[in-house]
Design a protein around this nucleic acid. Structure first.
Lengths: 340, 340
DNA sequence: CTGTTAGCGCGTTCAC
DNA sequence: GTGAACGCGCTAACAG
């Protein structure tokens, strides 16, 4: 049987209450007493039973998820995954609230975050907009001991505890190698469709993509980036225009709004053999992969990201460790053969 | 506050003990009383607090993992992941035992399984050897209410509750498409290195591989399979011999023993541009991917498989549901750019 | 500063 | 058949 609070109380010659105070770092214990208890804990190899503690406390974990109010399949999917987590709340003792903020709007994000410091959630998960003001509030909240994880898009250089998302530079590099290898000896131009160069994850994907292209596929030239604002209509127009260029042999779509891309491809390039790599598996991209309009899809598993964020925030709230390998968000590569 | 046993006892006008008898399907309750309690449970939307129940019972989950005693990196890794899980046992209330059996030996596996029915573990995870005798014992154990999941290699047609592993047909198909697309317009022959055609996962990979090759890459011909018995020495010899054939343009290694493959490639094909796809990310395959000896690695995450098996066995033991998406074992595709 | 005591939600003796 | 009472490991009043 593993040791309990009773055992260490007996070993240290104190009462349960004192042991509890030491365990929970509460004040009101003399230095000597505290040390006695701490040695007893170490000697007996005591491990606290978190489940029992939570039962006694009636503890729940109030968590907040902050998402951009973007109207694209990926964000809808992310939202749905969080709502799934809400359904599991009773079993997981979580109490999850979703807050939507205007996309690409640092000021809005900042004001939401500031409001949060009053209502004391025990953890915050946020899709970060990469701006100095945001970094500043996040750092302040972390100093005030709020656990914060960034979701999908990171806030580099901030004090956030963790980033639950894929390595976007690696994603861009991978896209470049797939495109380059699939094209083989063909020479030509590559169009890149992004959402906005103001978002960190898109910038990083482009950076990785351009690096590998330059290093390893000098026969392929990258055209100026098309910014589709993650909007299917805008994307459609931009891609349809670009396809007027007969030298294009491949396309890398590193953001959302792929619905527009796919429509443009079917209208303007049905007779051409373009090689296309896109991000995010949705109903649209899946269908396009199956009918050979798209050649490969890079994906991040939104469900995994949400579950991971929750596990990490809970662990942080309890001061516990996580299984690092379990929290690594993989870059999924889908060809038409390994679709889920 | 969600309802507790007290609430439903009050609602049904009975005592706690009676509620408990109903909840745990124990005898000694009149039909009418049972019904009263059951309606109260449904009306109040009662959900049992598993953590509290486990606390009261002092419950632990005795689990058994049965593995082949194979001396290759993948099995070593799988073993290590289980030992990691053993370290987490106190927190997860598990009590895990690893049993090694001779590889490819149905009789040994059967006798271990039969021994298990005496010691009553609350769940069994096993790397299955695909044989009728094994299927028979597994089915018997399942009927005796032992939760059983297959790990890495499945036992199709048996009553096992779940398979924690990748879809090997999809893996083979994916390998074929990668090889075919990477080779582009090149024509030639493809060598296939397997462990043994007696193991189900290897057969399935080959099946998927051959199917896509035939359908979509008619210019590439598959040579007769080389059976390396997952042994680096044997693999080395076979591949070195095969490379005498100048028509070979690609290699698919669908089993273990890649150390030998890699050595043969460096010795005999340093000057040739072969395209190589292999399975399982290990120290050796990782290095070979980085130095361009291998072009892509297909991988299954052993840590995920082990954690998933544990979650599923625990859930089955408690009669609870799992998050299906979380338990799907992905086929990881690694290029040199997205290595973990 | 420290100890006593009464729960948290559930399972399990025992009597009745 | 049914119920009262106690304990699981831990926390939180409230005394002292």
């Amino acid at each position: 049987m593993r040791p309990t609070v009773h055992d260490i109380a007996a070993a240290a010659g104190v009462s349960l209450a004192t042991v509890d105070r030491v365990l929970n770092q509460r004040p009101g214990v003399r230095h000597v007493t505290r040390e006695k208890v701490e040695t007893a804990i170490r000697d007996l190899g005591y491990i606290r039973d978190v489940a029992a503690a939570n039962l006694a406390k009636g503890r729940t974990y109030p968590l907040v998820f902050i998402l951009p109010a973007s109207d694209n399949s990926f964000m809808h999917g992310l939202n749905a995954e969080i709502r799934q987590a809400v359904l599991r709340s009773p079993a997981e003792r979580t109490d999850i609230r979703i807050i939507e903020v205007p996309a690409f709007d640092p000021a809005a994000l900042v004001s939401v975050l500031e409001g949060l410091s009053r209502e004391k959630p025990c953890g915050i998960a946020m899709v970060a907009t990469d701006a100095p003001e945001v970094r500043a509030v996040v750092d302040r909240l972390v100093r005030e001991r709020f656990p914060i994880v960034t979701l999908v898009s990171d806030l580099t250089g901030s004090l956030r505890h963790h980033y639950a998302g894929v390595d976007n530079i690696a994603a861009g590099r991978t896209a470049a190698r797939l495109l380059g290898r699939f094209l083989g000896p063909r020479k030509g131009e590559i169009a890149v469709l992004a959402g906005s160069m103001l978002v960190r994850d898109h910038r990083e994907r482009l950076e990785g993509f351009a690096a590998v292209m330059a290093e390893e596929f000098p026969d392929l030239a990258i055209l100026p980036v098309l910014e589709g604002r993650d909007d299917p209509e805008v994307a459609h127009r931009l891609v349809a225009d670009a396809l007027g260029n007969a030298g294009i042999v491949g396309i890398y779509s590193l953001g959302a709004g792929n619905r527009g891309l796919i429509r443009a491809l079917k209208e303007k390039a049905a007779d051409r053999t373009l090689t296309v790599v896109a991000h995010e598996l949705t109903a649209h991209t899946r269908a396009a992969l199956i009918d050979n309009t798209i050649d490969a899809i890079l994906n991040q598993d939104a469900g995994h990201e949400v579950r991971s964020a929750i596990r990490i925030l809970k662990a942080k709230a309890d001061g516990l460790a996580v299984i690092a390998a379990q929290e690594r968000i993989r870059l999924d590569i889908f060809l038409k053969d390994n679709l889920p």
